[in-house]
């Protein structure tokens, strides 16, 4: 308990807040690694996931590559890359992107797969082009799962960006690593708490953003017709409530 109080003391000591090695500067670095990796991962993962979900092709390949990527040991991988490229932000970003892409992919393609086939069929039958179907029907309806993928990828990246401290970079993980190296456990604990707090804050912000992004009709869990509930569609997250009766 003392250790915990010491950690809190450290965190709230104004002296530790600013400066080159202060909490704020490392927080900004941490956010920078996270934001950069997520930007790259979204650009790769979401379009690929949408492509797979819309066409229904290449699903098995994507699943195989994703689960392989998930199984890679992050720390081992980053050292391996550093052996080739030398130290720098590059290897860290590569590793974080590899980590973030699978949940983004899964969110995007399972989101599209969960959209009621007859809704898509109807959209096509009234004369929507394939792009219009993708952007005006499939994506809005898949948004809960797409966004779920973004949230879980972001959390993983925030947590894993801690390893930046191991490879000569900064970020909040630096406190953890310095603390462990110096056997200064309050410092290590403070680092851990900061990372957790950051993750919680970012997730809360994303949860609020999710409400804005997801269309009203979808937020109610209306991605399929009530009378088709007998035919189960893949659903991963519990966020979509059961379709209400329309009688």
């Amino acid at each position: 308990m003392n250790l915990f109080l010491d950690a809190l003391n450290f965190m709230f000591d104004p002296a530790n807040l600013t400066g080159a090695n202060g909490i704020l500067s490392r927080l900004v670095d941490h956010l920078w690694y996270t934001g950069l990796s997520m930007a790259v991962a979204v650009v790769i993962g979401i379009p690929l996931g949408l492509l797979v979900g819309h066409t229904g092709r290449g699903r098995n390949a994507v699943v195989a590559v994703s689960s392989a990527a998930r199984a890679l040991p992050t720390l081992g991988l980053i050292f391996l890359i550093i052996l080739y490229t030398g130290l720098g932000v590059g290897p860290l970003i590569v590793v974080l992107v590899i980590l973030a892409v699978p949940p983004l992919l899964a969110g995007a393609y399972s989101g599209l797969e969960a959209v009621n086939r007859s809704t898509i069929d109807a959209a096509r039958a009234i004369g929507m082009t394939e792009w219009q179907i993708l952007f005006k029907v499939e994506m809005p309806l898949a948004m809960p799962l797409i966004f779920g993928g973004i949230r879980s990828a972001t959390l993983q990246v925030i947590a894993t960006a801690t390893i930046a401290g191991y490879v000569g970079l900064t970020g909040l993980g630096r406190f953890l690593i310095e603390g462990l190296a110096l056997r200064d456990y309050k410092l290590a604990l403070a680092g851990a708490i900061l990372v957790i707090a950051l993750a919680l804050c970012v997730d809360t912000i994303l949860a609020l953003a999710q409400r804005l992004v997801i269309p009203h009709g979808v937020a109610r869990g209306l991605t399929r017709h009530p009378d088709e509930s007998a035919a189960p569609t893949p659903r991963q997250h519990g966020r979509v409530s059961p379709a209400p009766s329309n009688l």
Binding site: T119, D121, P215, H216
Partner: peptide, 12 residues
């Protein structure tokens, strides 16, 4: 085109 389960877009 009108189909059995109306085929309306649920988000609109």
């Amino acid at each position: 085109y009108v189909m059995q389960n109306s085929g309306l877009l649920p988000h609109r």
